[in-house]
Structure formats: structure tokens, C-alpha cells
Design a protein around this nucleic acid. Structure first.
Lengths: 208, 208
DNA sequence: CTCATAAAAATGAATGTTCATTCTCTTTTT
DNA sequence: AAAAAGAGAATGAACATTCATTTTTATGAG
């Protein structure tokens, strides 16, 4: 008499979310049909509904997962020995290594945030979490002498958040957008904000 | 025997787009139904279809109008006597005076861009247009001695585009986001990129 | 001025399709 | 053999669009 295999169930849910993610990127949350998702997941609707009670629940599950993945990268940021290196690695990961589809999903989620209060609440939490982690990381950097001692951190925090969002939006909408020089520019500007004025100014941007 | 009044027809179409815009911001392009739009426009479906042949056409019409409005602001940028003032006015207009709903619509459009080739083509055009106008405005500023003579313009162009997109995305997703200090920060950074190093560095950001 | 008239504007019910979800049944697993 | 996994047809609501019909409006003949 078989009992439910929890681990296998979690894997299956993840695979369904993967399939749903592909559909949502292709057609949007409201443009993709459950039938599309069933096809992509190789699964009948009857069976899919054993894992998620509704389409809404799938969207929320996907947002939750996406937020958790993003949050994870920031959680250990301040612990790294060299914060600049850790920061750059994190930015490179999110903006360059991750496929463009991640950015498209991000923008899709952001446009859903105002419509779905459930997702809105999740968004608020992750935004505050990330902002706090960035602020803490910069404070650590300053305490360790890795920035100018009197560096004003708050503008740098806000700059990073805004600029990263801008890069996500640009990459999502333009298939030819190469994020690499733009990440370099982001850190050039960040350095000019945080390092003593003696250090060389904004580096050049290699525009294609 | 009445003939068609073209001007009145254009007004009517604009009013329909206004109503549609409200619905699309509220529910998204694919979440809003034609019935919603008819209700918002105070118009029966049969009549609405005399002005737009399909929902798709309405979405395209709305994008086209939005792009045209944005483009208009940039078209005369380089002609202004003081480019810094003109730039700041334009940024304040788009980021502060315009309601948050504009930002939400912008994000909605950006997430539609990859799905609808028609809109994708429009997006490419307006992006290139804006980028060209910003570049030209900065060149004019440099020629007039309003920037450092050896200022590297390209990073500044890219910074402005990315940062403005970031502000749009943040304002769209967060109802409590106050764009004003962030626009100030944007121009502080821009000045630090374009003015000689003698001029005072990044201004403080008033965070609430 | 007025009224007949035909074009244009507008209506709202009808249509056919698509969609999310459910239900019944079969297959697999232990 | 019983519980879980899975399939796929069925259901009812919602949707974009169309159609038959009525109302409004501008015009020019009387």
C-alpha cells in the first residue's frame, strides 16, 4: 500500500514550474493556457491539478521560487572576504550568466505585482531583504576600509538597485542587448561613488 | 446625408485608448476583456469594433501612441538653450509629473515587446530614436562647453537610459516609491560623469 | 424653418471558440 | 489489493467577435 513520496513530489512540482516558466515567458501569465503548460510539462490536466490547485497557485509558486533564488544570492553577500569581488560575481551571475528569459520573467512578475496582492506582499519582502543586504554589505566594506571612510552609502545602495533593475528591463526587451559592458559601467560608477576621489574616475564603456 | 467627421473620429479613438489604458493597467493586456474596456469606455462592443478592428489592434494603437508621446519629449531636447535644464525638466516630467500608471503601462508594454513582433519593431525604433537624441543632446552640451571638454559621452548615454528604465520599473512595482530624490541622484551621477573633477562630487540622497 | 432621408453611430443579443477546472476511468507502484 | 499517479473526455463560464436592429445626425429639397 504505497505512501506519498514527498521528495519525488517536490521534484515533480519543480519540473512543472520549469515548464510553466517557459510558457509564461513565451506568452505571459495570462496569455499562456493550462493546456499549453500541460503540453510543455508532458502531463494531462487532471494530473497537473494534483500538484497545483489552480493556475493562480502556479503563478504564485513560480514567483515565490524566483524570489527565493534571487534572495539566496544576497543572503551571504556580506560574509564574503572581499565584498567587491562578491558583489561583482553576484551581478555577473544575475545579469550575464542567467539567461535572458530570467529577465523576461522578472519583468512579467513585476507587472503582475500591482495586480496580485499575494505577489505584491512577496515582492515587498524580497525588495526589503535585498536592500537590507546590500546596505549591510556596503557597511561591512566601509568598516573594513574597502571604501572611503566617509563614503555616503545610501546613494550607492539606491543606485545599485535602480541600475540593476534598469539592466534587467533593457535585457528583457532587447534581444541584442549585451549586458557585459553595462555591468562594468555599473561598477565603475559604484566605485566613483564609494572610493576616495584620488582613485581614477569612471572607466570607459566598450559600446559595440 | 452626413459624411464621416475625421477629427471627431480621431478624438473618439483617443478616448477609447484612454479607457483601454486604464483597463490594461488594472488587469494587463491579456487580463482585461473587451467587455471591461467597453464598460470603461461607456460603449457597446459593436460600436467599439467600428473604431478598432480587434483587441490586438487596440494594444498596438496604445503602444504606438505611448511611444509617440515619449519620443516627442526627446525630439526637441538638443534645441534647448540650456541642455541641463531641459534634461532635468524632461526627466522630472516622465518620472514625477506623469502618474505611476504610465510606468505600469510601460512595464506592461515592455513585457509584451518580446511576444508581439509588431510592437517589437516599434520598440526598436523608439529606443534608437531616444538613444540618438540623448547622444546628440550631450554632444551639443559638450560643444557649448556645458560639459568637460574631454568628457566621455557614451557611458553617460547608456547610464541615462538604464537608470531611467530602472526608475520606471521601481515606480511601477512599488506604490510607495518616491521618484524625486532618485531623479536628483540620477543627475548627481550624470554630472560627476560629465563635469570636470573639480566640481563637487555626488550630492546627498534624501531617503525617506 | 422643417422635415424626409440616408449615412453614420450605436446597441445588445447571438455565435463559436477557448479556457480553467472537474470527473470518471485506467494504469502504475508498492 | 489498495493507494497513488495519470489520462483524457466533459463541463460550464468567459471570451473576442459578429450581426441584426434601432437611434442619432447632418443635409438639402420644399
Amino acid at each position: 500500500m504505497p505512501r506519498i513520496d514527498t521528495a519525488q513530489r517536490v521534484d515533480r512540482k519543480a519540473a512543472i514550474l520549469d515548464a510553466a516558466e517557459r510558457c509564461f515567458v513565451r506568452s505571459g501569465f495570462h496569455g499562456a493556457s493550462m493546456s499549453d503548460i500541460c503540453g510543455e510539462a508532458g502531463m494531462s490536466p487532471g494530473n497537473l491539478y494534483r500538484y497545483f490547485p489552480s493556475k493562480e497557485a502556479m503563478i504564485e509558486g513560480l514567483c515565490e521560487r524566483d524570489f527565493a533564488e534571487v534572495g539566496e544570492g544576497f543572503s551571504t553577500l556580506a560574509l564574503a572576504p572581499d565584498i567587491w569581488t562578491a558583489f561583482e560575481a553576484l551581478a555577473r551571475f544575475h545579469m550575464i550568466e542567467e539567461p535572458r528569459e530570467s529577465c523576461q520573467l522578472w519583468v512579467e512578475i513585476m507587472s503582475e505585482v500591482a495586480r496580485n496582492p499575494q505577489i505584491g506582499t512577496l515582492r515587498k519582502k524580497i525588495d526589503q531583504f535585498i536592500e537590507g543586504k546590500i546596505r549591510f554589505a556596503l557597511e561591512m566594506a566601509r568598516d573594513r576600509g574597502q571604501t572611503a571612510p566617509d563614503a555616503d552609502l545610501e546613494p550607492a545602495v539606491q543606485f545599485l538597485i535602480t541600475y540593476a533593475d534598469g539592466l534587467m528591463l533593457r535585457r528583457a526587451r532587447d534581444e541584442n542587448f549585451d549586458p557585459r559592458p553595462h555591468v562594468d559601467l555599473m561598477f565603475s560608477i559604484l566605485r566613483s561613488m564609494l572610493l576616495p576621489p584620488s582613485t581614477p574616475a569612471i572607466a570607459r564603456l566598450n559600446t559595440p
